[in-house]
């Protein structure tokens, strides 16, 4: 389970000059699919993610997650934020187990899962560290682990590697590929990085701004399992050329 459906969804932010952030979005995501939203800043891709997360309310249309209308945030849709947004007063272990604890689970119900997720992101040795003692990449690993602990049916990732240096970003992309290839969760991934979108996604929704619209969908048929080695294949270059051509057209419009 993890099916997402946007039907004729739009979002206008009220104000003196109302801003139409998203206009008439229709998007279906199948269970286990990895979809990237690719576009320049201000195209509404984060707003789209926030609507599915339940952080923002839509103006019109409908959004369904596994058949149920999305009205508020919940642990079935795990969100990974750009700056990790860990709680700085909690150590890594308490950050990772925050979800199970506020949901009222007992320690033996979540402990082994939390240990496993900590191991999956390679931070077993840092359970007692505070976020301020970690590097940006490590913090983002904690941000991913704290979401995976809740076994969400979808992962919503809002430019999660955007603030990292190039080398750390590659390592994190590889980590995410490994994790996703193991768990098979539905992923909605927001990015402005063309390479990142092609490397990770099954399908790329290209977006343009004012008003935010999905201008084109591109299915990425690179073989799985992928790794950062896929970045240097001719097939990869072909997808990149296609996307850049589309961006030039969008820019000219």
């Amino acid at each position: 389970m993890g099916n997402v459906s946007f039907r004729a969804t739009s979002k206008t932010f009220p104000g003196k000059v109302p801003v139409c952030a998203l206009d008439d979005i229709t998007l279906e995501i199948k269970d286990g699919e990895f979809v990237a939203l690719l576009g320049p800043s201000g195209c509404g891709k984060s707003t789209l993610l926030n609507l599915l997360a339940g952080f923002e309310t839509r103006s019109t249309g409908e959004i369904k997650f596994d058949g149920a209308s999305v009205e508020k945030p919940g642990p079935d849709r795990g969100v990974v934020f750009q700056e990790a947004s860990l709680f700085p007063w909690l150590n890594v272990w308490d950050n990772i187990t925050f979800g199970p604890r506020v949901q009222g689970l007992k320690r033996d119900e979540y402990e082994s899962k939390a240990r496993a997720m900590l191991k999956l992101v390679g931070l077993e040795a840092f359970a007692d560290a505070l976020p301020a003692q970690l590097s940006g990449g490590m913090r983002q690993r904690v941000g991913i682990a704290r979401v995976l602990v809740m076994s969400p049916r979808a992962l919503l990732m809002d430019e999660p590697f955007g603030a990292l240096d190039a080398q750390t970003r590659l390592a994190m992309q590889q980590l995410l590929l490994d994790v996703w290839q193991t768990l098979g969760t539905t992923v909605l991934f927001v990015t402005h990085d063309i390479d990142e979108a092609i490397l990770l996604a099954d399908r790329i929704c290209m977006m343009s701004a004012r008003p935010g619209k999905i201008t084109r969908e591109i299915t990425v048929n690179l073989p799985r399992p992928r790794s950062i080695e896929s970045l240097i294949t001719p097939a990869f270059a072909a997808y990149k050329a296609e996307i850049m051509a589309e961006m030039r057209i969008a820019h000219a419009r």
């Binding site: 952080f55 934020f81 979800g99």
Partner: peptide, 23 residues
């Protein structure tokens, strides 16, 4: 985003107040 993260992880309003806003 701290508030959003807490809600996303299933925190109820009182949890948000005592576990996020207060600290």
């Amino acid at each position: 985003n701290w508030i959003r993260a807490a809600l996303m992880m299933g925190a109820k309003p009182l949890d948000v107040l005592t576990r996020v806003v207060l600290p």
